[in-house]
Design a protein around this nucleic acid. Structure first.
Length: 465
RNA sequence: GGCCUGGUAGCCAAGUGGCAAGGCAGCGGUCUGCAAAACCGUUAUGCGCCGGUUCAAAUCCGGCCCAGGCCUCCA
């Protein structure tokens, strides 16, 4: 049984999909007006964990991630550079997709762009006009929250508290109620579409309703995003979607907490952000970034620091060294208890993640297994079959974690001979020669370790340990 | 001001009534020709503070302090 914390009810609930064995997932994606920073990626890592764990649990996942490629910032950006909106947003979309790959984020089934779904949005807005939930005013269309009594429910917003004030946009004072939000904006900038609603462009919130319903249906299972999206974005999505269809829009809303820097939210407006590229330029392992963002519970604020990143880097490096070392357990007598130990670790892993993605508990299960196995290795009792079982388990859980380096590692014939030579030198107590050989390997980024199973080697990433 | 989070070791981080997981770093030891790795021991008689409930509290209740977020574009 998998349980998730549902923002809608403020409780952990058992996950019951609409269609047995399936999961429809809409995960809020980027606005492609600039490079994403790692605070943004925290959300995408959380969504990746959710996606992968549902699949690990046997669900067939259908996932959509929207690409917001038309809004005030993207329009301002392309006007400033005098390039087309598409040219401008393509640049940042490409960068985003590259970053996703570097962080080993699973690609959603659909990555719909807002600009490619204008007809869907127009038809949704028309439906809201027909049903009387929306009204037109000077070429723009607004959603009337007065017509939707449960507005504000998820966010726990008391509507009487939202007052008209200095922060209300100039183009918005034609609204009947300051709290109403735009479904369609009148032509103002260089970017517009000619539609049945007139010349203009969509409001921000409508794209998510239109695109999620197109790919996932009018009701679907899970919708995610950062906590800052709860209000007003997700609240507005609920209002416009449910008003249009008369059906419950989403069953489970999941929101992740922010990444902090020095105790403050990382954001573009505060200027306290790092992009993935900034970090990689400093020589950090991208897998460590993934691990760091993954290793804290998604609903807790995570304070980012280079110290924490360094720690994550060490953990990832040790973890991979352990994984590599399993290949050398070729002569052990075998250990009957290993299968039960693996079973225990698997149980801890799934019990943890099934409890609202409690990653710490899940990882602890694996680390406990590693310790048990290391003891067996140091006693020389771990057999090849055991090692294979453990490898299989690590690879299985790595479908969720994705922190292992699984590429084939091979030594050249020359290197293999050199290792044999060194082993003979050690038998002959020619330690000068054996140390020299070890140094030769070291200069090639390969560390030799003498163990009960013979000489073991591992590769070391440049700059790490 | 309203609403919502969080405060657990040097750092990161689980734990929501019954002996305080796990990771990283440090220190001491074992092993090793020397290393490396690993293992063993050690690092919170205490979980922001003060009260209360209870046989028993990090956990429940009340009050307070601190930090962050949302209420406006945001992951």
């Amino acid at each position: 049984m998998i349980r998730f914390y549902n923002t809608l009810t403020r409780n952990k609930e058992e996950f019951k999909p609409i269609k047995e064995g399936n999961a429809g997932l809409y995960t809020c994606g980027p606005t492609v007006y600039d490079l994403a920073h790692i605070g943004n990626f925290r959300a995408y890592i959380f969504e990746d964990l959710l996606h992968r764990y549902l699949e690990y649990g046997g669900y067939k996942v259908l996932r959509v991630m929207n690409i917001t490629d038309v809004d005030d910032k993207t329009i301002a950006g392309c006007e400033k550079e005098s390039v087309s909106l598409k040219e401008y947003t393509d640049r940042y979309l490409t960068a985003f997709l590259e970053d996703m790959e570097i962080l080993r984020l699973k690609k959603p089934d659909y990555l719909p762009r807002a600009t490619e779904h204008i007809p869907e949005m127009v038809s949704l807005v028309k439906k809201l006009l027909d049903k009387g939930y929306a009204y037109e005013k000077d070429g723009a269309v607004y959603f009337s929250i007065a017509k939707f009594p449960s507005y504000g429910k998820m966010a726990g917003i008391d509507l009487s508290e939202i007052k008209s004030g200095a922060r209300v946009d100039v183009d918005e004072y034609e609204k009947e109620d300051v709290r109403d939000f735009a479904l369609w904006k009148e032509e103002k900038e260089s970017v517009f579409w000619d539609t049945e609603l007139g010349r203009g462009r969509p409001g921000w919130h409508i794209e998510c309703s239109a695109m999620s319903m197109k790919y996932l249906g009018e009701s679907f299972d899970i919708h995610t995003g950062g906590v800052d999206n709860i209000f007003p974005h997700h609240e507005n999505e609920i209002a416009q979607s449910e008003a249009a269809t008369g059906k419950k829009f989403v069953n489970y809303w999941m929101h992740c907490a922010h990444l902090l820097v020095n105790g403050e939210k990382m954001s573009k407006s505060k200027g306290n952000f790092y992009t993935l590229r900034d970090i990689l330029k400093k020589g950090y392992n991208p897998v460590a970034v993934r691990y760091l963002l993954l290793s804290a519970h998604y609903r807790d604020p995570l304070n980012f620091s280079e110290k924490a990143l360094k720690q994550a880097e060490n953990t990832v490096s040790n973890y991979n060294a352990f994984y590599q070392s399993l290949d050398f357990c070729k002569s052990g007598i075998g250990n009957k208890e290993i299968k039960a130990d693996i079973e225990k670790a698997r149980k801890d892993f799934t019990a943890g993640l099934s409890d609202d993605l409690n990653i710490s508990a899940a990882l602890a299960g694996i680390f406990n297994l590693i310790k048990t196995v290391n003891i067996a290795v140091s006693e020389g009792t771990l057999g090849p079959e055991d090692a294979g079982d453990i490898k299989g388990f690590l690879e299985e859980t790595d479908n969720v974690l994705v922190i292992l380096d699984k590429e084939e590692r091979k030594l050249s014939g020359e290197q293999q001979n050199l290792i044999k030579e060194r082993e003979q030198a050690r038998k002959d107590k020619d330690f000068k020669k054996s140390d020299e050989i070890r140094d030769v390997f070291k200069s090639q980024g390969i560390l030799l370790e003498d163990t009960l199973y013979g000489t073991r080697w591992k590769t070391v990433k440049k700059g790490i340990k």
